[in-house]
Computed example of a mutant assay.
Amino acid sequence: MSDSNTTYFTNPSTFILLGIPGLEAAHVWISIPFCAMYIIAVLGNLTILFVVKMDRRLHGPMCYFLCMLAVNDVVLCTSILPKTLSILWFNAREIDFRACLTQMFFLHCFSAMESGILLAMALDRYVAICHPLRHSTILTNTVVAKIGLAMGLRSSLLIVPTPWMVKQLPYCRTNIIPHTYCEHIAIVKLACADIRISNSYGLFVVFFVTGLDVLFITVSYIQILRAIFSLPMKNARVKTLGTCGSHFCAILAFYIPCLFSLLTQRFGHNVPLYFHVLFANVYLLLPPMLNPIIYGVRTRQIRDRLLHLWTYKRA
């Protein structure tokens, strides 16, 4: 016999986002580092875009991909932080069902796009180091634009079925999501139906996007390292390796927190819920905050341009 207290509704009008369960008393304090990370991420990435636009010497494949990364990072962190801060500051927990699905799409789409852009940047480093004389002829502006478009289409086409599948599920008893934003796993757990198809598709997207991208990035760097260590002069090896430093740091900043969050979600059943939610926010804010700092400090052309602008304004 079915439970008489169970109400089924195909599409709830709203979801309730709890914020960080177990740490409600500390919401205001937690919001301070989150807000600071968001401000640094937005200002840092907009600065990168401004510097590249103003200096024609930076108009090349590496900086074009960096601009794509900057735009992607701003959209990615903006897709979650305003709502998260409204929950932490004003206890504004309600979110419309369609708005929730839209947030979920943007979140997962631009996360996948971030991985694709990092792969494109690895391709740029591979061509620049392994085929330096053909770099400008291989990675023309048209090719760079096509790569960016391909990464955007790949992410969009793979993520579009996810909100559609979530929308078809029936929900019952509760519309409360113990999170600060609408994440795929957090929503489907509320469904009163078999969620294996939705779960399996989510895992397929993760492994198809992240798994393949990591594989191709690894292959690229194996070829890059072989080319570097075949150089006869030690100074040339160090200098060439240094050109990969920024990209390698960006890879670590994105994939390590992403992998850790995925593993704790799937297998960390004894990990407190508040830790899951906290880290799910941090891993989406950390790369957008660190990327402009990494490239601003480690890329000589961008660093020199920033120093020039700074000294010019102070003069």
Rank of each mutant, 00 (worst) to 15 (best):
M1H: 12
F9W: 14
F9R: 15
F9P: 10
S13N: 11
S13L: 12
I16A: 08
I16G: 03
L17N: 04
I20Y: 05
S31V: 04
P33D: 05
F34N: 08
C35I: 08
M37C: 07
I39E: 06
G44S: 01
V52M: 01
D55H: 15
D55F: 13
R56D: 06
L58P: 04
C67M: 15
M68I: 07
A70G: 02
D73C: 15
V75H: 07
L85H: 06
S86A: 13
R93G: 00
I95G: 00
F97K: 07
F105T: 01
F110R: 02
F110S: 03
S115G: 13
I117Q: 02
V127R: 07
L139P: 04
V144T: 08
L157R: 04
V160S: 07
P163G: 02
V166E: 02
V166F: 05
K167D: 14
R173N: 14
T174K: 06
N175K: 14
I176P: 08
I177H: 03
H179D: 13
E183P: 07
H184V: 06
I185E: 04
V188M: 15
V188A: 10
L190F: 09
R196E: 10
R196M: 12
R196T: 12
I197V: 15
N199A: 11
Y201T: 00
F204P: 07
V209W: 03
T210N: 14
T210V: 14
S220K: 03
Y221D: 00
I222D: 00
I224W: 01
I224N: 00
I228P: 01
S230D: 04
K234P: 03
N235L: 07
N235T: 07
K239I: 08
T243W: 03
C249Q: 04
L252E: 01
S261E: 10
T264G: 06
Q265H: 14
F267P: 00
L273A: 04
H276R: 03
L278P: 01
F279I: 00
N281G: 08
L284S: 07
L286V: 10
L290C: 02
P292R: 02
T299R: 13
R300P: 09
R303K: 05
R305H: 10
L307A: 08
L307T: 06
L309F: 10
R314M: 09
R314W: 11
A315M: 14
